[in-house]
Nucleic acid binder design. Structure first.
Lengths: 140, 140
DNA sequence: ACGACGATTACGACGCGTGACAGTTA
DNA sequence: TTAACTGTCACGCGTCGTAATCGTCG
């Protein structure tokens, strides 16, 4: 027991985080370098410690990746989102953050649509390939 | 008139091909380097000349790309497909080619499924972002 | 002989990570 | 002691872009 990474505080070390989200340690650090996710705190010795919220955030990053956003774009998106949550509503910064977030939401939707289209084409192709292959497999 | 690229022979120059398929000249040549598509012939002066079948092949390549196959995998897939079409049916090479093609068809289907899943997640996320953004946009 | 088109070669760049290493912490 | 973690540097891969220079086609 006393598995590493699981502190009494509820904070997780990078290894736990990486495993839960399905990323490599290296990648998590890379995202940090790129400004995507700063650990909530550090252990006295310098180990990165993450909250479960941050695990969620990482998972979210991972989910958005298929849409092909660059790491920098994701940073901007997440920054805007954070700003929206931490800034007094109906303030000027909230408005600009909302605008940015809205842009990204639109972009995300557009990419979804394009991907959807490509995926349909690819599905058709995959089916076609399969039938071409099976046409020559008299015995299943 | 006498548009360049349209020969009486029905063969097309690389520019026409690239435009029809929606790839750059560079990309078409790159695919050739990687063994994906050799031009049907060359003009006396060395210009690449493509048949319309090859245009189709390029289009197919373009459509399969969203599935994330490497260029080398696509080469193998296309080679197997070509083999199936040029080899006497029910021969041994046809069987192995069919097996290869079948594998790739399966792989393609799997990737389609995975992409589909990812896309669904991403769609959900996009919607969520959109609503988060709009929540702060009292005036549309 | 002119203008569009193409060939070849080569250098580079971007985005996204991935090793490797030597030292530190738990 | 051992496993996990640290920072840093640098490398690799895929997919082309771009440019220079020169040949071809009609």
């Amino acid at each position: 027991m006393s598995g590493p990474g699981t502190q009494r505080s509820g904070l997780l070390q990078i290894g736990e985080v990486a495993e839960r989200v399905g990323l490599s340690l290296r990648t998590v650090r890379y995202y940090e370098e790129q400004g995507l996710l700063e650990p909530a705190s550090r252990s006295p010795g310098g180990f990165r410690l993450y909250s479960t919220d941050q695990v969620d955030r990482l998972a979210l990053i991972k989910q958005m990746k298929p849409l092909g956003f660059t790491v920098q774009e994701m940073r901007e998106l997440l920054d805007a989102r954070d700003a929206l949550r931490s800034v007094p509503a109906a303030s000027v910064p909230a408005e600009t953050a909302a605008a940015t977030l809205s842009e990204y939401a639109d972009a995300a939707a557009k990419r979804c649509a394009k991907l959807s289209e490509q995926l349909d084409q690819a599905k058709g192709l995959a089916g076609q390939l399969r039938s071409e292959a099976q046409q020559h497999r008299t015995t299943s």
